[in-house]
Design a protein around this nucleic acid. Structure first.
Length: 545
RNA sequence: GCCCCUGUAGCGCAAUGGAUAGCGCAUUAGCCUCCGGAGCUAAUGGUACAGGUUCGACUCCUGUCAGGGGCACCA
């Protein structure tokens, strides 16, 4: 198929707007969407409702006039072969009803071109840097990091599928106060293991893993002053492996230590000073972030001469732009929401548009077991780790569960449900649909016909299923617009449901050869979509379960 | 005190400002000579409260109430 009918109809609506002399009144993009209910046609626009206010006329009247023009234009174009009628319904919606041939053609496109029929045709115009996890290398990843990892990786997959150039980056806090404390913690534990009496400060790392590192450091005779770097390096290896086992990879590990060495921090200070956004007070150096809407100015160099966390971070975000990225996405935990304004302020100070940085706050996940929250305490080094979740439920269920709620909402993650192999567990529901299709295809006496006559697919469930397939792209558009991949999990559950309903009422392996060929093609189309969606989520597509 | 997130059916959730607010669990009543019953069909039941914006509000704005998280010259 050349141009999609949706775009053709939008073009036609734009033409009619011009024809009626309304085009200038309505410069916005014309929206033509799947209606909320299948009864209201196959495409729908609320344009007349929007126009009615501008024209000061009743919506239905405006809709009728627009519809008359549209009908006329459709009847003299090639669209008349696919559009059965254009109707004004409800408050003033204009609904387009399409012939089934249109859906057969779309299905055919999917089964002949596969995933390529769904992916972006052209490269998108933005170079995206998505920074996520970025946990300090001072301990194993927590479930909070795990959720960020799942969301960030999946969002990157989706944007990449939609044609954006995407880079995944982990900002590595490999020097500074926390690394010093880590080194101090290992040092004390090593002394303790040697039999010395020690006093372990409360703000030091309490977890048992510090003993493990201390033992290794003792064996390797690591020097006292190198303990921090040694421990951070050791933990980083563990973090990398945890992420790999979770199916998350990064294109770039951006070292704060390297950034500090590069002189970019001083360069950023110099430029800010030049612009008059730095000043000294109480022996500290302040960034005038209030000039850009922050609540208060922020210290970047403390009175003791050391930098705050904000200092390298300002330079880091400026560096993202100088590396050629023009869409920055940061995934942060809810404890960082106060940082949004100050980082955006720093970007504004450098002359960037604050909206080029999108900060997604990934809300916390609470782990439940049999309906009871599992208690945790980071202070004592007792928190639930990504590793524990992976060991218990596996990467597939973990990824799906972390993704299945709106990212900005709290998430309850019940380990027992994630382990269940039943309908209660949505990831199994979706994977089961995929496996079931594979099973049918295996037991089919014939292969998939290259030229099936799809027009024999006349049952309600068959047409619903095809229409559901076409909603995939809308789902991706929503994911992009909201910077949130969770809608994909909802879509896959709905698609699986449509498939199970079809399956229950109609036999694929029907004695009628033509019908069987068409239904095999249909379920193959469903398989392609399920497979593509699961791949974007980073979840396996089992052929048998 | 200030900031962020969340209040939708008994429970867990969905609904890119749109048409009769959807789904799962639970409860109740059904469906297996048959491609995987890990499934399907029904019944029951709902937008925290008070204003406002809009042709139209679960959705946006203001206030109230309730739950969770955060408010350093920490990272």
């Amino acid at each position: 198929m050349s141009k999609d009918i949706q775009q053709e109809l939008i073009d036609l609506i734009a033409y009619c707007l011009k024809d009626l002399g309304w085009a200038e009144l309505y410069p916005e993009k014309i929206s033509l969407e799947f209606p909320t209910d299948r009864r209201f046609g196959d495409f729908s626009t609320n344009l007349a409702l929007k126009l009615s206010k501008l024209l000061k006329r009743s919506p239905r009247e405006v809709a009728a006039e627009l519809t008359a023009c549209l009908s006329k234009e459709i009847s003299r174009s090639e669209l008349k072969a696919l559009v059965t009628q254009v109707k004004v319904e409800g408050a003033g919606f204009i609904n387009f009803y399409l012939k089934e041939d249109y859906f057969y053609a779309k299905l055919k496109e999917i089964i002949t071109r596969g995933k390529a029929a769904l992916a972006a045709e052209a490269k998108a115009d933005k170079k995206v840097l998505i920074e996520f996890v970025s946990a300090n290398p001072t301990g194993s990843l927590s479930v909070a990091h795990a959720r960020q990892a799942a969301v960030g990786d999946c969002l990157a997959n989706v944007l990449s599928f939609m044609g954006f150039a995407v880079q995944r980056e982990y900002y590595l806090n490999d020097e500074g106060n926390q690394i010093n404390i880590l080194g101090g913690s290992v040092s004390l534990r090593r002394k303790e293991l040697r039999g010395e009496k020690i006093e372990f400060p409360e703000n030091y790392y309490q977890g048992d893993y510090i003993y493990d590192i201390a033992k290794i450091a003792e064996e390797l005779r690591i020097k006292e002053e190198e303990l921090g770097d040694f421990a951070a390096g050791h933990i980083l290896k563990i973090i990398r492996q945890e992420l790999l086992d979770f199916g998350v990879h990064f294109d770039c590990w951006y070292s704060q230590k390297e950034l500090a060495k590069s002189g970019k921090v001083e360069e950023a200070f110099r430029r800010l000073k030049e612009k008059g956004y730095l000043y000294e007070q109480d022996g500290a150096l302040w960034f005038k972030s209030t000039a850009f809407g922050d609540d208060k100015d922020r210290v970047i160099i403390k009175s003791d001469g050391s930098q705050t966390y904000l200092a390298p971070d300002i330079a880091y975000h400026e560096d993202k732009f100088s590396r050629g990225f023009n869409w920055l996405i940061n995934l942060w935990g809810p404890d960082h929401h106060g940082y949004i304004n100050r980082i955006k302020a720093s970007l504004a100070a450098f002359g960037h548009k604050p909206e080029e940085l999108e900060v997604i706050i990934v809300q916390l996940a609470t782990i439940f077991r049999n309906g009871q929250p599992v208690q945790m305490s980071t202070r004592r080094g007792q928190y639930i780790t990504l590793r524990e979740v992976l060991d218990e439920v596996g990467a597939d269920a973990a990824r799906f569960f972390f993704l299945m709620r709106r990212t900005s909402s709290h998430l309850d993650f019940d380990l027992e449900i994630a382990k269940k192999q039943s309908a209660e567990n949505p990831v199994f529901y979706v994977q089961y649909a995929h496996a079931r299709i594979c099973s049918i295809l295996r037991s089919s006496p014939e292969g998939i016909s290259q030229e099936p006559d799809l027009s024999v697919l006349k049952e309600k469930e068959e047409l619903n299923l095809i229409k559901k397939l076409l909603e995939f792209n809308t789902t991706l558009t929503i994911c992009r617009a909201t910077c949130d991949p969770y809608m994909l999990t909802v879509y896959l559950q709905e698609l699986s449901e449509s498939f199970h309903k079809f399956y229950d009422l109609h036999r694929v392996l029907d004695p009628d050869k033509n019908l069987m060929a068409a239904r095999l093609a249909l379920i193959n189309g469903v398989k392609i979509l399920l497979s593509c969606g699961l791949e974007l989520l980073g979840i396996t597509r089992p052929e048998k379960m």
